[in-house]
């Protein structure tokens, strides 16, 4: 068993770069989509809200695997060229989690007390200044704990890229290791679990750091309660569940 360990680990580690690229790329795209989408969900123009709603509900309402297959197998027929599997994956991860992130952003912005808007109006700040300088920095503190959950979810979702031949960690295990080291299945899976646990731990540590910085900027301590609430709130829960 242990003599195979030295052969198994390198194969798994070869899968690490695609997993990390998909995670980081997906997170970047998620942020780029969820912040504007979340703010537009609060637009005073109805057609804007409806349009963004369609994006949000469309991606939250269908399966991520369907989205992946659709973008990888159907979209090329429509646009006339094949996407690189890894980038198709990043696209789906970002679009999907961006839809969930939009709700997080919207909820966080709405949670900033009305009085803060009024304080900013009384100082004659413009609507854009109000949002950028006063409201959003406070909303950021609220959105980080649920965003952490969302990013962990995204990290886990990178495994589905195995289904479109991306040689990431899960596919390395399933397609290379299992067929060749059949006696070491438990070891292989133990290592795969370990890889994801470590990545999740790194991600969480980074998000905690961000939470600490953002909280300090609004003169608060990072809220453990918010993190627990985010953990229990679950997927697709639109508003933070009051009382739970």
């Amino acid at each position: 068993m242990s003599d195979n360990l030295s052969r198994i680990v390198p194969v798994l580690l070869q899968g690490l770069p695609p997993t990390v690229i998909a995670t980081v790329g997906g997170i970047v795209l998620t942020i780029l989509l969820s912040v504007p989408a979340g703010l537009l969900l609060l637009s005073s123009r109805r057609w804007v809200r409806v349009l963004v709603r369609i994006y949000v509900e469309g991606f939250r309402g269908t399966s991520e695997v369907v989205q992946l297959f659709w973008i990888y197998f159907v979209l090329p027929v429509l646009i006339g060229f094949q996407l690189v599997p890894l980038w198709a994956g990043v696209l789906v991860l970002g679009l999907n989690h961006g839809a969930y992130g939009a709700e997080i952003v919207r909820g966080a912005v709405q949670s900033v007390p009305r009085a803060q808007y009024e304080g900013a109006i009384a100082l004659s700040l413009s609507p854009a200044q109000r949002m950028r300088r006063v409201i959003f920095p406070q909303a950021l503190v609220e959105m980080l704990p649920p965003m952490n959950n969302l990013f962990i979810q995204l990290l886990k979702s990178t495994a589905i890229l195995a289904l479109i031949t991306v040689p990431e960690v899960t596919r390395q295990a399933r397609d290379v290791l299992i067929p060749n080291y059949g006696d070491d299945t438990i070891l292989i899976f133990g290592l795969v679990f370990l890889v994801y646990l470590v990545l999740a731990a790194i991600l969480t540590a980074l998000m905690r750091l961000a939470e600490r910085i953002a909280s300090r900027r609004v003169g608060r301590r990072p809220s453990r309660a918010a993190r627990v609430a985010a953990r229990a709130a679950g997927p697709g829960v639109s508003d933070r569940m009051a009382g739970i």
């Binding site: 803060q116 009024e118 304080g119 006063v134 406070q138 609004v218």
Partner: peptide, 9 residues
């Protein structure tokens, strides 16, 4: 304002 409404950020 009654509640000050200072910006905490």
């Amino acid at each position: 304002f009654q509640q000050f409404n200072l910006f905490p950020n």
